[in-house]
Amino acid sequence: MRVLLIEDEQRLAENIVAALRETGLAVDYALDGEAGSHLAEQGVYDAIVLDLMLPGKSGQRVLRDLRREKIHTPVLILTAQEGKESIVSLLNAGADDYLSKPFDLGELLARIKALIRRAKGVSNPILMVSDVELNTVQQTVRRRGQLLDLSPTEYRILEYLIHRPRAIVSKQELLEHLYDFDWEHHSNVIEAHVSNLRRKLNIAGTEPLIETLRHRGYRLRDEIAVL
């Protein structure tokens, strides 16, 4: 999952980015409204954390423009301003959640994850597809009760695919949602990770859970066809 942070306070942005990356999210950040708005409108993010007082373009305008562009990425507002009115008007303008500064970093992470989950149509932090169980809190994966040892990237690929069962997910889409701009990424890397993941998920005598569709991408089956 990939998150965009728009926050002009450099030190705060650094801390939030570090925390988000440590929980396995890809993060891009912008230090002003213009750049943030530009990034947000690319539509590759699964959640956006938006400060209100921004140089260049205010958070309110960033949000308004985003919704006008019909981009429905969940937005969490960070604010140090007092007053309930602005929160009400922000929620009415299309924000999904808010936290006031100074906030708890753990709460911010939990809220971002909840926002991503809900945007994907899931409310339970434990995701299930056929006999695979993915715990987004502990970041663990079990198949038929058996704990699987996945690398962080493999976990993230699986998490993304589980959110989109039966759909064909292109390599490009995986790249966009799993890596931020700070990563050197090549589609070969994805291929290697997917093949590792497929191997780890595999149980003898069943069809592979992740299908590879040549030139199109990957698909997660939600029913296991017994061979």
């Binding site: 801390n15 440590e22 500064k101 100074p102």
Partner: peptide, 25 residues
Amino acid sequence: TNDAAHELKTDVAIVKSSLQLLSMR
């Protein structure tokens, strides 16, 4: 008062997030 509150909250938010980041793991 509003500006002072904003300023202090931002500074406190930074300190708090720095320490919480450190204690995440």
